Amino acid sequence: MTIRTATPADAEAVTAIYAPIVRDTVISFELEVPGVDEMRSRIEKTLQTLPWLVALDARGEVNGYVYAGRHRERAAYQWAVDVTAYVRADARGQGVGRRLYGRLFELLAELGYCQAFAGIALPNAASVGLHEAVGFQRIGVYRAVGFKFGAWHDVGWWQRPLRADAAPLPPRRFVS
């Protein structure tokens, strides 16, 4: 498996991984599948400041991706990020998510980020297992926060430290 920085050319493969999650599950709270152009725009926007990584299988095809986004807008939150991981259905359970997260956490720590947060629509045992396996701890639940497929859904929140700085410098921008 190879892990590299995503490029706009990965948008089609990323969309193919994400589309069934939006269309068929409550794992994502998006109600409409974003198109390839929208996904390309998201990748480009993220890479202006933060990492977006893809994993490639032995055939060179994208089999998973991770990225980080700002946790909140206020200045005191600048050392915290929200992270997201998705793995192609036929590649789940093979360590793709763990490897992607491992590299993402290294990059985020190098950039100066101190805390990572992950929101998981519940129930989702596979995602909870992945996040806890890579060092996240459950910190709380937003009850009945998302409405999809005719029902309310909870979102659990997990937190993972990236580095400990008593007086951190502002995080640096990601440069691929």
Rank of each mutant, 00 (worst) to 15 (best):
T2S: 11
T2R: 14
T2Q: 15
I3L: 00
R4K: 12
R4F: 01
T5N: 06
P8Y: 09
A9H: 04
D10Q: 08
A11F: 12
A11Y: 03
A13I: 02
A13W: 00
V14Q: 05
I17V: 05
Y18F: 01
Y18W: 04
A19C: 05
P20M: 06
I21R: 15
I21G: 07
I21S: 08
I21V: 15
R23D: 03
T25A: 04
T25W: 07
V26N: 11
V26D: 03
V26C: 07
F29K: 10
E30Q: 13
V33F: 06
V33R: 00
V36K: 15
E38C: 11
M39K: 11
R40Y: 09
R40K: 12
R40V: 01
R42A: 00
I43V: 04
K45F: 02
K45P: 11
T46N: 05
T46C: 01
Q48E: 08
T49E: 09
L50H: 02
P51S: 12
W52M: 09
L56A: 02
D57W: 03
D57H: 00
A58M: 05
A58S: 14
V62L: 01
N63G: 14
G64V: 12
Y65H: 00
V66A: 13
A68P: 11
G69S: 14
E73A: 15
R74L: 13
R74P: 06
R74I: 14
A75Q: 05
A76S: 12
Q78G: 10
W79A: 00
W79V: 03
A80S: 15
V81Q: 04
V81T: 04
D82V: 14
A85C: 13
Y86S: 04
Y86D: 01
V87F: 05
R88H: 15
A91K: 06
G93R: 08
G93E: 05
G93T: 09
G95T: 11
V96Q: 08
G97W: 05
R98F: 07
L100A: 08
L100M: 00
L104T: 10
L104V: 13
E106Q: 13
L107Q: 13
L108I: 02
L108R: 00
A109P: 02
A109L: 03
L111F: 01
L111C: 02
G112F: 06
G112W: 03
G112S: 09
C114M: 05
C114A: 12
Q115K: 09
A118L: 12
A118C: 14
G119T: 11
I120G: 02
I120W: 08
N124P: 08
A125R: 13
A126Y: 10
A126R: 13
L130R: 06
H131K: 00
E132V: 14
E132S: 11
A133H: 13
G135F: 04
Q137C: 09
R138L: 13
R138C: 12
R138N: 11
R138I: 04
G140S: 09
V141I: 12
V141P: 01
R143C: 03
R143F: 08
R143Y: 10
V145E: 05
G146C: 07
G146V: 02
K148A: 03
G150M: 08
A151H: 06
H153Q: 06
H153I: 02
V155Y: 09
W158C: 07
Q159W: 07
R160E: 00
P161D: 04
P161Y: 09
R163L: 00
D165S: 15
A166N: 11
A166W: 10
A166M: 09
A167R: 15
A167G: 14
P168R: 06
L169A: 15
P171S: 07
